[in-house]
C-alpha cells in the first residue's frame, strides 16, 4: 500500500469491518480464523443472529485508531455506506487501504466520496461468498498498483486468490447469480413450475450447485434486490426488472424481523 507520501507499509493484524450484518459476521469469522484481530460495530441483535463469538472478534461503538485495514460491506443502504466510508477515511491513517463491496455502487464512485481516493478498492461481497477460494477485486481509476498488491497479499493471508475485473455494478458472480435467481422467481410468478420442482430441475438437470430459490434464501432477498436494482439503474434494460414475488418475499422477511 502506497501512502500519499509514497511509502509502503506491511499489513498489520487489526481489521475493522462494517456494513450489512450477515456479510460482516461472515467476514469477521473468516478474518478471525486467519489470525487477525477483528473489530465490528455493535449491531442491534434483537432481530438478527447474535454477534460472531470468537476470542479475537470485538464489538465496538467507535472505529479504533490502530486499524490497519478496513472493510466496508454495505450493499443495500448506500447513504449509510457513504457515511461509513467517510468516517473510515477520516479515522484510519491514509496509508492503509479500505476494501469496499462494490456490487451495488462502483468502487470509483465510492472513492469519489472520500478524500484519500487512492486507498479504496472494490470487492464482490455478498452473503455466502466468504468461504470461496477466490474473490473479485475491482480497482478504481485512482488505484495505484501498490494498493492492489496489498489487497492481494491480504486475501492470500485469508487463503484466497484474487481476480481483477472491471469496476462495474454487480461485478461478475453477483450479477450472474442474482439474475438467475430473479428469473427463477419470475418463472414461479408465472406458474411455470412448482418452487421445489424448479430447484430439483436445476440441481439435478444441469448441475447447479444449489437450486436458485434455495440460494435466494441463503443470500437474502434484500441483497438480491439491491444488486438487480443497481443494475437496472446502471444499465436501464428491462431484463433487470425485479420479480414481484421476490419483492414480496423480501417484504415478508423484513416484516417477520419486526
Amino acid at each position: 500500500m502506497k501512502s500519499s507520501t509514497g511509502e509502503s507499509k506491511n499489513i498489520e493484524h487489526k481489521i475493522y469491518i462494517t456494513g450489512d450484518y450477515p456479510i460482516v459476521a461472515e467476514y469477521a469469522e473468516m478474518c478471525a480464523d486467519s489470525g487477525f484481530k477483528v473489530f465490528i460495530p455493535n449491531y442491534d441483535t434483537s432481530d438478527r443472529k447474535s454477534h460472531p463469538k470468537k476470542r479475537n472478534i470485538q464489538t465496538t461503538n467507535t472505529i479504533p485508531a490502530s486499524i490497519s485495514i478496513a472493510i466496508e460491506l454495505t450493499n443495500i443502504d448506500l447513504e449509510t455506506k457513504r457515511s461509513n466510508l467517510e468516517k473510515l477515511d477520516k479515522k484510519i491513517p491514509p496509508e492503509y487501504p479500505i476494501l469496499s463491496s462494490s456490487i451495488t455502487v462502483t468502487a470509483t464512485e465510492q472513492a469519489s466520496w472520500i478524500t484519500n481516493k487512492y486507498r479504496l478498492v472494490g470487492i464482490s461481497a455478498l452473503p455466502t461468498l466468504v468461504n470461496k477460494p477466490l474473490v473479485e477485486v475491482a480497482p478504481t481509476v485512482y488505484s495505484p498498483k501498490e494498493t492492489i498488491k496489498t489487497v492481494s497479499k491480504f486475501f492470500a493471508l485469508l487463503g484466497k486468490e484474487i481476480e481483477i475485473v472491471q469496476d462495474r455494478i454487480g461485478m461478475v458472480y453477483p450479477r450472474v447469480i442474482c439474475r438467475v435467481i430473479n428469473e427463477a422467481f419470475c418463472a414461479i410468478t408465472e406458474d411455470i413450475t412448482k418452487p421445489e420442482d424448479l430447484d430439483t430441475a436445476l440441481k439435478y438437470g444441469v448441475n447447479f450447485p444449489m437450486g436458485p430459490l434455495e440460494w435466494a434464501e441463503k443470500i437474502g432477498f434484500d441483497q438480491i434486490i439491491a444488486v438487480i436494482s443497481a443494475l437496472k439503474n446502471d444499465i436501464s434494460q428491462e431484463h433487470y426488472n425485479i420479480s414481484p414475488l421476490l419483492k414480496q418475499m423480501s417484504l415478508i422477511r423484513s416484516n417477520n424481523k419486526i
Binding site: V172, E183, I192, T193, K194, D197, T200, P212
Partner: peptide, 27 residues
C-alpha cells in the same frame, strides 16, 4: 424424476440456463 412444467419458452431448465448464459455474454 418428472418435473411438471407449463408449456412456455424453454420450459424451466432452458429458460433459467438461457439467462445464465445471456448474462455471461453481456458481461
Amino acid at each position: 424424476i418428472p418435473i411438471f412444467v407449463k408449456d412456455s419458452p424453454g420450459f424451466i431448465i432452458g429458460r433459467i440456463s438461457q439467462v445464465f448464459i445471456n448474462e455471461a455474454l453481456k458481461l
